[in-house]
Design a protein around this nucleic acid. Structure first.
Lengths: 134, 134
DNA sequence: ATAGTACTTCGAGTTAACTCTAAGTCAAGG
DNA sequence: CCTTGACTTAGAGTTAACTCGAAGTACTAT
């Protein structure tokens, strides 16, 4: 089973434009072509696209993903570099989650204040005192 | 106690340029000025900057934050709009956290594969079979 | 064979969010 | 008085990541 660029785009919620752009940037160095020059995606390629999307959606830049792809193309001797890169990135993702949870607390507190303004003075000392009182 | 733009920038890990940019975009409509025209930040203003940073860091666009700021300036009659906006945004943040956790699983799996390649075939069916074998 | 559809490349344009430069003002210290 | 340093504005430039348009090729159905 193989897939066209539009099928893959649909599957991952991207546009064909974006997939070609990723290809052009070197993020997909091993996508095959059919006899008329069209990109042909295999199941294995789909796994790779999933990995690219995962890295992108967790904030890795295209430049870094290209570095990762380049290392993958170079074979086994780059395993250590790849492992280090993923371990570093993992830390960043863990930090992102922690930061988001912290921010969520402030958002929750703010919503609570709107539901019960009394809480504002008690809990925080009057955020927006100035604006709310105008 | 009041603060200069550079003190605030330091406190929040932003540049003074960025704070002025936010001000220009209407994200800080109530920052006072000293007699020579310099921005003067109060403790209350710091709380507001914290809120802006929270919204920005959780993916809200400057345009949306401006909308929120505008509503804050209009006073009590916009409480409902603000509450709705924050509740909607809260949902998005919760989703971001869930998505990041999901992505983290793939990253963890991939790291595990690098540590013990045997797992690849068992768990996933050979991601990167093509690239690893070249 | 011809119309339609899906793909191709190349390169220009867009958007968001900064990021910086230039030219100028202002207050304090020597 | 003069320099130094922190601030001011307006506006231009940068960067990342798309996003689109034009022009062309190739298979598919009528």
């Amino acid at each position: 089973m193989t897939y066209t660029i539009n099928e893959v785009a649909d599957k991952f919620g991207l546009s064909a434009h974006t997939l070609r752009f990723y290809d052009k940037e070197g993020l997909m160095p091993f996508i095959g072509r059919g006899k008329s020059g069209n990109r042909v995606f295999t199941e294995t390629d789909l796994n790779w696209v999933a990995m690219v999307c995962c890295l992108k959606d967790t904030g890795m830049s295209i430049k870094e993903i290209k570095q990762y792809a380049d290392w993958c193309m170079q074979g086994m001797q780059t395993i250590d570099e790849r492992k280090t890169m993923l371990a570093d990135h993992r830390k960043q993702v863990v930090k992102q989650i922690a930061d988001l949870k912290k921010h969520l607390n402030l958002i929750d507190w703010k919503i609570a204040v709107y539901d019960d303004p009394e809480k504002a003075e008690e809990m925080y000392g009057g955020l927006e005192k100035k604006t709310e009182s105008t």
